[in-house]
Design a protein around this nucleic acid. Structure first.
Lengths: 192, 192
DNA sequence: GCAATAATTTGATCCAGATCAAGGCAGAAC
DNA sequence: GTTCTGCCTTGATCTGGATCAAATTATTGC
């Protein structure tokens, strides 16, 4: 853990593994996300790139010094940490209480939302995006098996909620329809 | 959300509920834990006391001003937020990948550890503590049903891992034995 | 192009934990 | 004491998602 930084392009994941190989992703690192933890020597989680990733990197020690000199930076860091905490807690609801289908729909919504930061998602009628995760990575993120992920994605496709092109390109004609599949309150979380 | 503060005595929980009533706890608030979020108007989660709780309360606005005047305080807040984030991520592994028995054992370890802050838990041979949560609250915390919680607690008792007194008092003769049931690496997380 | 390899789908079967349904028990109110 | 009321346990059954086992389809390297 000699560096901290932030993702510029690409997708990386943050995960934990148990001794017997069970694996849970605990964070998705998309462009603009911060990587690493100031004030701690060791890395608590594994970071892995799933696509080629460009990082904007700082040596940790000088960065910590910078934090002391620039109160604004620490304020920003606190804000980011609290936002991540909220996101982690949303994810806890998903892992603990949602069905497989709701989990998939929620993940698609999150990726869709992150790839479309230009305008609020409720004003977008249709949406096309790239799924830069393998079925296995999605499974590890959602607490499912890759077979279940595959089956549920195809079920959503069969039901006309999404369309697929070459396995990794998703096309959503009606976002409200997908949102209804997430199990979330219509006005909570995704529309902000 | 007019106040922020910190728990002095008692136990409270932080939870989220879905429209159809499914519920997931996302945080356990024990003495010394911080409640509320500076810099945000609304509360994203429900806070509920499970026992009588004493809070040390601050009005949010003045507290935010205090944050600006005292850089140390903001540093401390950042540290606390990052620790909570780590804890939330640990919890994600539990929710996504652990078995019911492992979930119960992990919860017992966490409560045991929090009630015994005097010496590192690996030096304690036996331990007695109060379980201030109902079976239902534990279920909501672990992403299980209350029946499964009851069955698994009694299974751990039958297997001699724990002893029970009046349903809510737990007695652990051999902490290593309980730790082995959590599914966690022997040296990770609980021993710090 | 043509392997070789990785990712995905699909089918059959299984099982941990959910669900449904009574009971049991302890503390509180009377 | 007795009746409530809120927990907790226990049993029977069901089921969503896991597991095991092949195909099938993309992607990569040559």
């Amino acid at each position: 853990m000699e560096f901290v930084g932030s993702v510029v392009t690409g997708v990386a994941t943050l995960s934990q593994t148990m001794e017997d190989g069970r694996r849970q992703m605990v964070g998705l690192l998309l462009p603009s996300d911060f990587v690493g933890r100031p004030g701690r020597e060791y890395a608590a989680f594994n970071v892995e790139a799933t696509t080629d990733v460009t990082l904007c990197k700082f040596a940790r020690k000088p960065f910590e010094k910078l934090l002391n000199d620039m109160p604004h930076l620490r304020e920003r860091m606190l804000e980011m940490a609290l936002d991540e905490l909220d996101a982690a807690r949303e994810w806890m609801l998903l892992l603990g209480r949602k069905t497989a289908r709701e989990k998939i729909a929620s993940l698609l919504m999150i990726i869709a939302k992150r790839q479309n930061t230009l305008k609020p998602i409720e004003n977008v009628e249709e949406l096309k995006f790239e799924l830069s995760l393998t079925r296995e990575a999605m499974a590890d993120y959602l607490g499912l098996t890759l077979e279940t992920v595959s089956r549920q994605i195809n079920a959503l496709k069969k039901d006309g909620v999404i369309e697929l092109e070459r396995k990794r390109h998703v096309f959503v004609k009606d976002i409200t329809r997908l949102l209804n599949e997430t199990g979330d309150d219509a006005d909570g979380g995704y529309f902000e």
